[in-house]
Simulated assay, not measured.
Amino acid sequence: MTPAAKTTTGPASGQKPRLNQEIVLSTALALVDAEGLDALTMRRLGQELGRDPMGLYRYAANRAALLDGVTELVLNELDVVPDHPDWQVQLRRIAHDLRLLALRHPNVVPLLVTRPLSTPLGLRPVGTLRPLEQILSLLSAAGFAPADALHVYRAYYGFIYGHILNELQELIVDADEDEALLRLGLHRLPAKEFPQLRALAPFLADYDGEAELDEGISILLAGLSARLADPKKTTQP
Rank of each mutant, 00 (worst) to 15 (best):
A64K: 11
A4K: 00
N20F: 12
Q90R: 10
R44T: 14
L101E: 01
V32Q: 00
R104D: 06
T119L: 14
L189M: 08
D148V: 09
Y207E: 00
L182F: 04
Q90C: 11
L45E: 08
Y207G: 00
Y157K: 11
Y207I: 03
S26A: 14
N20G: 14
F144V: 08
E48F: 08
G216R: 03
G158I: 13
A64P: 01
A34H: 07
G209C: 04
G162Q: 11
Q21A: 15
G55R: 13
R51Q: 15
A95I: 04
Y157T: 12
L132E: 07
P120F: 02
V113S: 06
R183D: 01
T9P: 01
R43E: 08
E77A: 15
A65D: 13
P190I: 02
L139W: 06
D206K: 01
G158C: 15
L171I: 10
G10R: 04
R18V: 12
G143F: 06
R227Q: 06
L171C: 04
R93I: 03
M54T: 15
A61Y: 02
R188E: 12
L40M: 09
T128W: 09
D83V: 12
L45M: 15
R44S: 14
R44C: 10
L25T: 08
L91M: 14
G14Y: 09
D68M: 05
W87D: 01
L165F: 02
P110C: 10
I164V: 12
A61H: 09
A229H: 01
P3T: 08
A149G: 11
A4W: 00
D52G: 11
T7Q: 03
A142R: 06
R104A: 14
R227V: 09
V173C: 07
R198K: 07
A229Y: 00
R227A: 11
E167K: 01
H105V: 03
Q90G: 05
G46A: 11
Y207K: 02
R99N: 09
N20Y: 10
A175K: 07
I160E: 01
E179G: 04
T128C: 07
L184P: 06
I164P: 06
L228H: 07
E22W: 09
H105P: 07
D68V: 07
A149L: 10
P82S: 08
S218P: 09
T27S: 15
N62Y: 03
P106H: 00
P195Y: 13
L25E: 05
L171S: 06
L139K: 03
S118A: 15
E170I: 01
T2M: 11
L224N: 03
P85R: 04
A155F: 15
P106L: 02
A60C: 11
R188G: 13
P17Y: 06
Q169G: 08
L186Q: 04
V70E: 05
E212Y: 02
T27F: 13
P82G: 04
L101N: 01
E177H: 09
T41R: 04
L117Y: 04
A39W: 01
Y153M: 14
L67N: 03
T7V: 05
G223P: 10
P85G: 07
G127D: 00
P11E: 05
I135A: 05
L101A: 02
M42K: 03
I172A: 09
K16A: 13
L171P: 00
E177W: 05
P17K: 08
A102W: 00
A191C: 03
G122D: 04
R188T: 13
A5Q: 00
A199L: 14
E167L: 02
L67T: 05
K16P: 00
S26L: 12
A222D: 08
A61S: 14
A226D: 12
